[in-house]
């Protein structure tokens, strides 16, 4: 009997089984690859923003202030709550949008009669691809665009209530009213957070509108709570109706991206030591910040 040159059924089944196992291994990995790509895109956004901060610094010799005006507790009282992200719009090639905001600068009320069509503009650089927050939120009769990023105001957070330490005397580079310089960062720009990620910018516990700067909330966050502390959790302060934790958080599993003052962007894991994390938010801690 001559030998047939063909596969047996068992050989075929074995091959199919092996292919099945390989696909089973690969499919979840593909989903991770998508998240990795989103994270990379998010990293790029932060890098562009830090670059824009440095371009701003080159023009004006200071970083943009976290919030243009102060409120009742400091002079000038009732200043505009315009955030530093508005000031740096020309540096991210949004000069036309900046021109819409320009008449509402220092000495005038913000947002005044600035229409929702301007306030709801959401430049791509302010949105992390992993973000699932709605693009805008309606507050006080205006529609505001939300953002995935906030300045690091310092390491003072809900523990300092709504006092001076979270407004114009916080330990980072971005605060109420005053602008800070590169030379203020005596720990070195490579050891200092300037921009981090935020989730749920539409919720009252975690409001994050890029056009507004507000303590424990919009555009000004702190490293008091651990990274990825979700809204309402951790150490909170409740000045009015909502628990505010001022925390940085992201939708990336296991941590969040942070832009450092030197332009590097690093993924900070949730497991980072809390003391080191807090110190990374301080410009002049004098402490070693290895992690």
């Amino acid at each position: 009997m001559d030998k047939k040159n063909a596969f047996t059924l068992v050989e075929l089944l074995v091959v199919i089984a092996i292919i099945g196992v390989l696909i089973a291994l690969l499919l979840p990995a593909v989903q991770q690859a998508r998240e990795a790509a989103r994270r990379m895109s998010c990293t790029n956004n932060i890098k562009q923003l830090v670059l824009a901060l440095h371009n701003y610094e080159s023009s004006f010799l200071v970083f943009p202030t976290g919030r243009v005006g102060c409120d009742g507790a400091c002079d000038p009282k009732s200043g505009p709550s315009t955030s530093g992200f508005v000031l740096m719009l020309p540096q991210i090639e949004q000069g036309a949008l900046y021109d819409q905001f320009a008449p509402y600068g220092p000495g005038s009320a913000f947002p005044g009669n600035l229409p929702s069509t301007v306030l709801s503009q959401r430049p791509d650089a302010f949105v992390c691809p992993s973000s699932i927050m709605p693009p805008s939120v309606t507050l006080s009769g205006k529609e505001w665009a939300t953002s995935s990023y906030a300045f690091c105001s310092g390491h003072y957070g809900p523990d300092q209530g709504i006092g001076a330490k979270v407004k114009w005397d916080n330990s980072g580079l971005f605060i109420y009213r005053d602008s800070r310089k590169i030379s203020d960062a005596t720990d070195g720009l490579s050891n200092l957070f300037v921009i981090g990620e935020v989730v749920d910018g539409d919720k009252p516990t975690s409001s994050n509108r890029w056009a507004i700067g507000s303590r424990l909330l919009d555009s000004l966050r702190s490293t008091r709570n651990p990274v990825n502390t979700l809204p309402g959790m951790g150490e909170v302060h409740k000045p009015y109706d909502h628990d505010l934790n001022a925390a940085f958080a992201s939708r990336h599993p296991g941590g969040a991206n942070f832009g450092f003052g030197d332009g590097s962007v690093k993924f900070i894991p949730e497991t980072i030591n809390l003391t080191v994390y807090r110190n990374l938010g301080r410009r002049d801690s004098g402490k070693v910040k290895s992690y």
Partner: peptide, 11 residues
């Protein structure tokens, strides 16, 4: 009371 301090509630 925060409101009596002139604190801007941000909304």
């Amino acid at each position: 009371d925060p409101a009596a301090l002139g604190d801007d509630p941000g909304f």
